[in-house]
Design a binder for these strands. Sequence first.
DNA 1: GAGCACTGC
Length: 672
Amino acid sequence: MAHLPIVQFEEQIIRTVEDNSVVVVIGETGSGKSTQLSQMLHRHGYSKRGIIGVTQPRRVAAVSVARRVAQELGVKLGEEVGYAIRFEDRTSDLTRIKYLTDGVLLRESLSDPELSHYSVIILDEAHERSLNTDILLGLVKRLTKLRASNLKVLITSATLDGEKVSEFFSESPILNVPGKLYPVEVVYSRERPISYTESCLKTALDIHRKEPEGDVLIFMTGQDDIEKLVSKLENKIRGLEEGSCMDAIILPLHGSLPPEMQAGYVVDSGYVKQRQYNPSTGMYSLDVVQISKVQANQRAGRAGRTRPGKCYRLYPSLMYQDELLDVTVPEIQRTSLAGTVLYLKSLDLPDIDILKFDFLDPPSAESLEDALKQLYLIDAIDENGAITSIGRTMAELPLEPSLSRTLLEANENGCLSQALTVAAMLSAETSLLPNRSSKNNEKKRKQEPVELPTGSGYGDHIQMLQIYEQWDRNGYDIRWCRDTGLQERGMVFVKDVRKQLSQIMQKIAKGSTDVRANRRYRESEHDYRNLRKALCVGYANRLAERMIQHNGYRTIGFKPQLIQVHPSSVLKADDDGMFPNYVVYHELIATSRPYMRNLCTVEMRWVSPIFKKLENLDVSKLSGGLHRDVRNGEGKSLELTKKENVAARTPDDHESRVLAARERFLARKAQK
DNA sequence: GAGCACTGC
């Protein structure tokens, strides 16, 4: 510990914390800030009146840092030093230093908005600007005013961008702690890369042949490119003259492969694949974009962890200086905010105007209005933007709003156990299903793979339900997952999520519900009608309508977009080559084309309430009066038209009602 | 024959 650079600053740090309620600590990799700050404050008595909480963006970090600190203090993990991550709370009444993911701290603040158990909150790795960290920054800022006398806040960041955070916390002091990196020499390319994979290949081979021995770490944008480069490198290295240079081992490193690597050389392509959300179309896209200067410096830093290193940037230094953004666009500006807005609404902050919530980097008004619109469509807020009792209950569930809403509806519907399974399966996100085209899978397995259910023609949600039920029938045997090619780790995660959701739902429903996974399939229900109905209510903000005489769909409720069924979907066209008229989708994603991923067929008659709601939608009212003064009159006349229309309807004729509502909706759209 | 980068409750 004594060798960590931060230790020599202890006195200065404590003095600054004593005099200020917020302190920004800039410390590069290896400074020891994650393990030492908490211990320093503990030594100086800050853990006497409350817990010292340290947040981390990732679970592994929370666990490993807690373990280290417990070891350094010579205490048993879970006693004075503990951690809390989803599914795992290793703290006790003795705990004085608590490491936790920032998601867990957000959950805690739902039941304890002033975070009164804590005397100190350290937001670690704030430079990563994860969505949860950004929400916490805003909440903690409020707390420093509410609890000025008994709360200390430390924000740590690895970059030199501390001024902005300091400004946000009304000019709080910034402390700089040097890191423990070895020098890294940066080499730029003379020209911009034409094909960055080709440049990677060439540079890696050059390093291998000409530079002294060492490991090479290459930063690329995706699994596909990585796998291609690995096979190309293998071929080239094999082709090199024997004895002309050292042998090389080539290892792919991406999402599904856990280990962290040190390196002597870094090759930085200058690009990253980034996911971003477009609030006007409701669509995500995955784009290869230039990295920021911060990212470039972090990549270079990876060369200097264990000894001096070298970083090859496959782009000219002018491009670094003039084109790369200083910092990465924070996640809060790249994601759908429905969940975030619902969370904030459920906190009942006195300054209710979500559009004016104090974010370090505020998301666009458009993005917030999109979130409000979506929440309105699924009944989480009313037409004035106030949170409903449904919305309150939804916020208690660790799910995105559409799935929370589905669970509540399913609970009314008598199909909760099924909905729990679907919600848990979708929480796993990274595809659990075997990739049919993957050559490896087919070669590896000698015997015929076990056939998986295909959703009975109702789509991917139903397929997920059927798969999980089949696993249940097989006694949750992990070998069954292996035989069917399902992701084993992923399925275990689903089981954990399902258990957690079941417990919360039982609490909400006061224990009167049956959440057993095997409850439904023993009965004779084959059309999954109630479940699909519940999904239609939960996904009211994600509805698509098939175009006439056409197999493409049009999104409803967004700027209309032509979208296709994703090729990975189990939903196939019927015997006439047609898809169903209406579907709800889990996600819109533009890759080579705009696609809907994970869909469920719904019936026309269930869709009419959605059109009705869209018809009544007035975003200016939802956003708590932002434009209310200007549009007041217009809003009133619209109310009248709506009532007349309701009166004129024949209640029985569902189809014509849907069509009429749809027509009005489209007409209104065209007027705008 | 077209594909999903990370992470979290």
